[in-house]
């Protein structure tokens, strides 16, 4: 493995400065062009099943209850209870305090293979003291979370305190160690430019992220195609430089099968087919799963299905 920075803020700043700027017009154009790819019949059916396995089934509401968690756990294991050929989802993503009950419910429904992801470090704003963020993460890990979705301090990043952001990610990574995968949420909707998205992606990867994630889902715009494209380029280039394969999670605003398939096309074309795997690409969503199921039913039966045939979440 090649070390790109020695951990000091100075070396980090110097390294991030060497990154070329993003051609905004080019990125928008390329993303728009790839969105016109037509994925039909057998490719479509493969893509739908792959997308289902990549879904991080998410419920992040103030009104979440144990009952709601029970329902989504059952859905995570068998998304369509009338058709057991539908694969399980990639993970279930909840707030910290619901990790334990999520783990129990998944295990009880035969979903012990499905990881529980917890959002930590004062999600979604990231505005809390450092000890609170550490404790937040510890709680999730102790309750059995095997994936940690942390947010970066966007305020610090935007005001140039790169060392602070780097150290936070590094400390959380040390806490996760071998117990959990670390996903770092960049909240690209607040980063303003694509250059910042590229910088933040590298910053997170250098600090030890296993995944870089677009957004919390609480801010719009979220996972737009050009942003995902910039992040996929970053993980691809990072892999070439270091040999480490980092994953990408697109979250927020992906509601239809069409949107999801567009994301898969981006993954295949930008990062490459090696990333077309739930281990390296995830889609954070809640409503998307129903649309994937409806489209799957349509392919199987030959006629359009309706919202009465999937669960109300």
């Amino acid at each position: 493995m090649v070390t790109l920075v020695d951990g000091s803020e100075e070396s980090l700043r110097t390294y991030l400065k060497t990154l070329p700027g993003v051609d905004k017009v080019g990125a928008d154009q390329r993303a728009a062009m790839l969105a016109t790819r037509s994925i039909k019949t057998t490719s479509k059916s493969w893509a739908i099943d792959m997308a289902i396995q990549m879904v991080d089934l998410t419920t992040l509401e103030g009104a979440d209850t144990e009952g709601k968690v029970r329902a989504i756990c059952a859905k995570a294991v068998h998304p369509d209870p009338t058709d057991f050929s539908v694969p399980s989802v990639g993970a279930v993503c909840v707030y910290n305090d619901l990790v334990k009950v999520t783990r129990q419910n998944l295990d009880a429904n035969g979903g012990s293979h499905i990881p529980v992801a917890a959002v930590t470090t004062a999600f979604p704003s990231g505005r809390a003291s450092f000890p609170v963020k550490i404790q937040d993460t510890k709680d999730a890990l102790d309750d059995g979370a095997t994936e940690i979705d942390m947010v970066i301090d966007r305020g610090a990043f935007l005001s140039g305190k790169l060392g602070l952001v780097f150290d936070e990610i590094k400390s959380i990574k040390e806490l996760c160690a071998d117990r959990a995968h670390l996903k770092v949420i960049l909240e690209t909707g607040e980063l303003v430019t694509y250059d910042n998205v590229r910088k933040a992606s590298y910053l997170a990867m250098l600090a030890g992220a296993d995944f870089i994630k677009t957004s919390t889902g609480k801010v719009t715009p979220a996972a737009t195609a050009p942003v995902v494209l910039v992040m996929l380029e970053a993980v691809r280039d990072y892999y070439v430089q270091t040999g480490l394969r980092i994953g990408v999670k697109a979250a927020g605003g992906i509601r239809t099968t069409k949107d999801a398939i567009k994301q898969l096309v981006l993954v295949n074309e930008i990062a490459g087919p090696d990333w077309l795997n739930p281990q390296y690409f995830r889609i954070g969503a809640s409503a998307l799963l129903n649309d994937l199921l409806l489209q799957r039913m349509k392919l199987a039966s030959g006629h359009y299905s309706g919202s009465n045939y999937v669960t109300l979440d």
Binding site: G302, H303, Y304, S305, G306, S307, N308, Y309
Partner: peptide
Amino acid sequence: PWMASHMEV
């Protein structure tokens, strides 16, 4: 026929 087989109709 697509209308008649549509489950939402």
